[in-house]
Design a binder for these strands. Structure first.
Length: 271
DNA sequence: GCGCCCGTCCGTCATCGTTG
DNA sequence: CAACGATGACGGACGGGCGC
């Protein structure tokens, strides 16, 4: 288990939380999906000096019970909207999210590092443009696969391809033998906006350790983004539910009013 | 000004469901 | 079945309001 809860400040460059703009208008009325009275988890050290949670068997069961999965917000909402509430908009596989990802990736890496430890800039043409518009995708290809650039490349050249926010594609080439494969990462030791790429073919324990550290950082980075997205979705979901409540209240009022009128009508007829 | 409380945001971990 | 994405839970940071 690599779960450590004592390393937050070191391994997350953005976790300082300094002057994060607070979302002013989001008053989330609590909609409790599951009981959340989870007892404090006991904590102890693992072999490596990391603090880890230790659940008792009962604790695990209880936790599992509590954590029993609900469908995703999108699913719930889409089911709701398709089944009975035409007024409620579906949450789509949204463009908004893509936009958000683009903006997140704006802060990501515009450099790769060669096996020689040399950092090369991905932003071939215009670094400013890259950093303002952001990377959308980064893909690695071997020479010969990229039809456009392959012609101009010496055989065996590794091509690093990325797509900018405006859809235009940029390529960076690395001489054959210089690099075999890259893993993208944003290590906390590097300034924001720098990506590391390191070769595979690791043999020594130290390299293994570095490799696993890299993997961990990558995983954390992805999860960070995923958590952001998830929260965004959750907010949308809650907003939609609130809207739905408002609509239903309105309908309820109207129905009560109608019932009242019909009753009056009925009474007058009988008189 | 200071301490306390509360609400919000964020990163991380654990876990589940999905997908290739 | 491993890898990955989604998400609940947790804890820390931060800001605002309030009483002293």
């Amino acid at each position: 288990m690599d779960g450590s809860i004592d390393d937050k400040s070191e391994d997350s460059p953005s976790s300082s939380g300094s002057s994060q703009p607070q979302n002013l208008s989001t008053v989330v009325h609590t909609i409790t999906a599951v009981p959340t009275a989870i007892p404090n988890q006991p904590v102890e050290e693992d072999g490596e000096g990391h603090l880890v949670r230790t659940d008792t068997d009962i604790g695990i069961e209880k936790r599992r019970e509590i954590l029993s999965r609900r469908p995703s917000y999108r699913k719930i909402l889409n089911e709701l909207s398709s089944a009975e509430a035409p007024g409620i908009a579906k949450i789509e596989e949204d463009k908004e999210e893509e936009a958000a990802i683009t903006s997140i990736q704006t802060t990501i890496p515009s450099y790769v590092q060669t096996s020689a430890g040399q950092t090369i800039q991905i932003a071939a043409a215009n670094q400013n443009e890259l950093t303002t518009q952001g990377l959308q995708t980064i893909t690695m290809t071997n020479a010969g696969q990229g039809a456009v650039t392959a012609a101009a490349m010496p055989a065996g050249t590794t091509i690093v391809q990325y797509t900018q926010g405006d859809g235009s594609q940029q390529f960076v080439t690395v001489p054959a033998g210089e690099v075999q494969a890259y893993q993208i990462r944003a290590p906390s030791s590097l300034p924001a906006g720098v990506v590391m790429a390191t070769p595979t073919g690791i043999t020594s324990p130290q390299q293994l350790a570095e490799e696993s550290a890299r993997k961990r950082e990558l995983r954390l980075m992805k999860n960070r983004v995923a958590a952001r997205e998830c929260r965004k979705k959750k907010k949308e979901y809650v907003k939609c539910l609130e809207n739905r409540v408002a609509v239903l209240e309105q309908q309820n009022k109207a129905l009560i009013e109608e019932l009242k009128q019909l009753k009056d009508l009925y009474c007058h007829k009988n008189e």
